[in-house]
């Protein structure tokens, strides 16, 4: 089973939920931190056996001796990664989306595959669990191929818990699109509610069932609960706002260590998620 934790709005508690849920898992799991621009899960986890693998993506390399400046590659590339200036064909690797169109169209076989490093995929263990995260090279713009690389490295013999990047555009989609269930974390504020509704629309568009976790819940503030019941989305868990939680988070501590009473809540959440998983499997 592959479960994503996503949110729309940033800073609502995706990573907090992911690391606490991972540490409360009833079986060995693999946590995938797919926020490759700003991966944070490893900051909260004591990891061992860290291994790094650089990850690259195709870029065109031009053989100027073979190139006849016919311009076919320049025409086919819709990302302006190949441009003829004067009597030279120039490649702009940072514009390339790796569609390989230029290589296919070149009649002279003057374009060969090169590589641009996107960043690293890092694998580590913690207890019986595994953690895999991506670390995008600073200055690189394109995160989806690295997000896919993190997922390719995941083992296929255990459940996967995936910490998604914020937003609702390509990076978030690349992270959640083949998940079985998505847990949407939000906070009871107008921003939290607005972005939650965008994330719900996204999950529905991708046909992935979802549930909601309210973080920093306050007594008497029911805007998220009201929305969930209106939209008929299961409310999975409420984590109350406590200044002590915020302070221990700031030091990189897990909630279940700060307040062991929460451990039961996370174990309960696993039960709900696994039950949902069984239902989904039965339905398909």
């Amino acid at each position: 089973m592959k479960i994503a934790i996503a949110s729309g709005k940033g800073g609502t508690g995706k990573t907090t939920l992911a690391v606490n849920l991972a540490a409360s898992a009833p079986m060995p799991i693999c946590l995938l931190d797919c926020d490759v621009e700003e991966p944070n899960a490893h900051l909260f986890i004591q990891t061992e056996r860290i291994q790094r693998y650089p990850e690259g993506v195709f870029v065109p390399v031009i053989d100027t001796d073979r190139c006849t400046l016919c311009g076919k590659c320049e025409t086919i590339c819709r990302f302006s990664a190949l441009v003829i200036i004067g009597k030279r064909l120039l490649a702009y690797p940072e514009m390339c989306h790796a569609c390989l169109g230029c290589m296919r169209i070149c009649p002279e076989e003057a374009i060969s595959p090169g590589e641009r490093i996107l960043g690293d995929v890092v694998s580590a263990t913690f207890g019986t669990h595994q953690l895999i995260w991506g670390e995008m090279r600073v200055g690189e713009a394109m995160s989806p191929p690295l997000i896919e690389a993190v997922q390719r490295m995941a083992p296929d013999d255990r459940s996967l818990l995936l910490d998604a990047p914020p937003g609702t555009s390509c990076p978030m989609i690349a992270a959640i699109r083949d998940c079985d269930f998505v847990v949407l974390v939000t906070e009871p504020t107008p921003f939290g509610l607005h972005d939650l509704s965008l994330a719900v629309e996204t999950a529905r568009h991708l046909k992935i069932p979802c549930g909601i976790v309210v973080n920093r819940a306050e007594k008497g503030n029911t805007q998220i609960q009201d929305y969930a019941s209106r939209e008929k989305i299961p409310l999975l868990l409420e984590i109350p706002f406590k200044r002590s939680y915020a302070e221990s988070y700031s030091r990189g501590e897990k909630l279940i260590d700060t307040d062991p009473a929460l451990k039961k809540a996370f174990t309960g959440l696993w039960e709900i998620i696994l039950k949902r998983g069984q239902e989904i499997r039965r339905a398909s």
């Binding site: 990573t15 621009e37 700003e38 944070n40 900051l43 909260f44 600073v138 200055g139 988070y249 700031s250 030091r251 990189g252």
Partner: peptide
């Protein structure tokens, strides 16, 4: 940013981008 381990980690990466 905020004074948290995550805030610090992410600030340093953003600072590097701005410097570049």
């Amino acid at each position: 940013t905020e004074p948290t381990l995550s805030g610090r980690h992410d600030m340093l990466r953003l600072a590097k981008l701005c410097a570049r």
